[in-house]
Design a protein around this nucleic acid. Structure first.
Length: 586
RNA sequence: CGGGGCGUAGCUCAGCCUGGCUUAGAGCGCUUGGUUCGGGACCAAGAGGUCGGAGGUUCGAAUCCUCUCGCCCCGACCA
């Protein structure tokens, strides 16, 4: 391709509104253009990279035995009603009606395709002999995000690879899951990403039923927790906490005292007002668990974890109680709840760390009032102690003696053992060898293709621009004739361009009649892995210059045989990614 | 949904507080001519705007007021 024949709108300045590196660079390098919040055009260069990521995903899916199909993005709303997901998705589901003659047809744009694929499979799969099978598609998904942000990291329309496995037993599902897990590792590896599979909240199957593939990045929206010593890693919602080693301080017990704390309803306000540490505070949260209010106690500097609370309470659904319920249960407005003398007797659950708070501070169940010198057993009782909070940096690892650390990360993929949720709701059943009818056991596996690009850029750039691995670069080689007005340079460049294409190399010829500096800056900004410079001076000596984007030094190459040499270099790097990875450790 | 910020040329912005010396500006980009030519050149001449939109205040509004739309950030939410 010649530069002058395509559209590459690079920008010198950072467009207003772009903040994180991947967004800034994708706009500046002319990869994408924004149409509206959460919707981006993939320009010629961006599309090439997107297609490369897509191709890698497709190859590995096929290699893992998954079979590609393509489902419509347009779906009948009734399908989502059958599984209760119209409500579950809420406003995220883009739904509308179209008029057809004298009737209205309610539809939704697919945010994911469990319903559609399960419906399909229920029609065509009815015997255990037809399984296991894993089907996948690569298709645009629609989600009306409450708040699209971070450029292409969170958009209302995005390209997703979604795969679904169908098995006859939990053991067989485990094998299907393992295959996808392994394929994901290969995919992220081939894309040149540093990734981390972490344990995620799992559904009905339990155990190791769900993993997220995370790309550690400062601007990631997710928080993952991992052990500094062993390989334990989980997302924040899931992360377990090892045995708490803390001991209560041995300061003398204080008397229970009531203090006025006008207008101080948050932990921060109270600690400032009473000049105490958040670690001394007993945060009391009123939740509604399956319709019944419960009190949950966590240390002031800790965050409650709803999933853990739900499990501890043995409930199927928990949510923070609305203000009316809080008023009713505690007798005080929000912000002054405490475990001592609640107005209504409700079960009290406490996080392990609350056990050792001596002379704590907590709400007095009375407006603008807190209690100090609060001690367990003497002043209040706890029904159940459990791990009820999010893991924090420095917490003990649940698997070894190490400590946990927190990191931000971008979720690029997710594998999940679904079980029979959708097959039961949509009657996808099969007959086993004993002629018994069973629901099909499913798994689902997603990869955000756009996120592969965004997270790659987010973690691979320098002051000059993007650093692409050969595997995903829009073009592998950028040919730069320094002076296109020079007939010899132009001729050599054109010949080399044609020869490289014939050799199967993705090459872009920068045939613009602009100064060399402009071309170099643009080549660095876009980040083509290999730059080949054809200059008059070099040509006189029968040489040209090659330079890897992520390496410091350029190298002179004999013009004779240069094409073959470049094709070799690219082919080697394409399959191994060695030089790109070496840059990271170097 | 709560809090904050921003909308002026294709892009980045100044002007707004204190309304009129603006016939709306600068830099970059674009067009034309010339000089340059291996790290975002220089000179000259141009093209390009209903100052996001609507209403209001005023002799007069980019500037003040009201409403509205859009975009960005933080939080809440997130299969």
């Amino acid at each position: 391709m010649r530069w002058t024949q395509t559209l590459i709108p690079t920008m010198k300045e950072t467009p207003e509104g772009a903040e994180i590196p991947s967004h800034v660079l994708m706009l500046r390098a002319g990869l994408v253009g924004q149409l509206m919040a959460g919707a981006y055009t993939y320009l010629p260069l961006g599309l090439r990279s997107l297609r490369k990521a897509e191709a890698i995903v497709r190859q590995e899916m096929n290699a893992a035995g998954a079979v590609e199909l393509l489902m419509p993005a347009l779906t009948p709303l009734s399908l989502w009603e059958q599984t209760g997901r119209v409500e579950a998705f809420g406003d995220v589901l883009i739904q509308f009606s179209v008029r057809r003659q004298n009737r209205k047809v309610p539809m939704a744009l697919g945010p994911t395709h469990e319903e559609v694929i399960t419906d399909l499979v229920s029609r065509h799969v009815s015997s255990y002999r037809q399984m296991p099978i894993t089907l996948y598609q690569i298709q645009t998904k629609f989600r009306n995000e409450e708040r699209p942000r971070f450029g292409v990291l969170r958009t209302s329309e995005f390209l997703m690879k979604d795969a679904y496995s169908f098995d006859t037993s939990v053991e067989s599902l485990g094998r299907s899951y393992e295959k996808m897990y392994a394929a994901y590792c290969k995919i992220f590896e081939r894309c040149g990403l540093v990734y981390m599979p972490v344990e995620a909240e799992s559904g009905p199957i339990g155990g190791d039923a769900s993993h997220e593939f995370m790309i550690p990045a400062d601007n990631g929206e997710d928080v993952i927790v991992c052990c500094a010593q062993c390989s334990y890693a989980a997302n924040l919602e899931k992360a377990e906490i090892g045995a708490r080693g803390g001991r209560a301080s041995d300061e003398p017990l204080q008397a229970l005292a009531q203090v006025a704390t006008p207008e101080a309803s948050t932990i921060e306000q109270v600690t400032r007002f009473l000049k105490c540490q958040p670690q001394q505070m007993i945060k009391t949260l009123i939740y509604v668990a399956d319709g019944k209010p419960i009190a949950v106690l966590v240390r002031g500097d800790h965050e409650a974890n709803e999933n853990k609370i739900r499990r501890a309470a043995g409930a199927s659904k928990v949510a923070l109680a609305p203000p009316e319920i809080i008023q009713q249960v505690t007798g005080a407005p929000v912000g002054f709840a405490g475990p001592v003398k609640l107005r209504q007797p409700i079960p009290i659950y406490a996080d392990e760390d609350v056990r050792i708070i001596r002379n704590g501070v907590t709400g007095a169940n009375q407006a603008d009032t807190h209690l100090t010198g609060v001690n367990l057993e003497r002043d209040y009782q706890v029904q159940t102690f459990a791990d009820l909070r999010n893991a924090a940096a420095g917490d003990p690892c649940p698997r070894c003696s190490g400590r946990l650390v927190q990191r931000h990360a971008i979720e690029a993929g997710h594998v999940f053992k679904l079980g029979t949720k959708y097959s039961e709701a949509l009657s996808a059943r099969f007959l086993d060898a004993q002629e018994r009818l069973n629901p099909i056991i499913m798994g689902c596996y997603g990869i955000g293709i756009n996120r592969i690009l965004a997270s790659l850029i987010e973690t691979n750039y320098d002051n000059a621009g993007i650093l692409w691995p050969v595997a995903l670069a829009p073009y592998e080689v950028c040919l730069v004739p320094v002076n296109v007005a020079d007939a010899e340079s132009a001729r050599v460049a054109q010949e080399m361009h044609d020869a490289l294409i014939a050799a199967g190399v993705d090459v872009l010829l920068d045939d613009r009649d602009v100064r060399a500096g402009v071309k170099f800056k643009d080549a660095d900004l876009i980040g083509f892995p290999l730059r080949v410079v054809i200059g008059e001076r070099g040509l006189k000596q029968g040489k040209l210059e090659i330079k890897w984007r992520w390496e410091e030094k350029a190298e002179m190459l004999d013009l004779a045989g240069a094409t073959e040499r470049i094709a070799q270099l690219i082919a080697a790097e394409r399959s191994s990614g060695e030089r790109f990875r070496a840059r990271r450790s170097g």
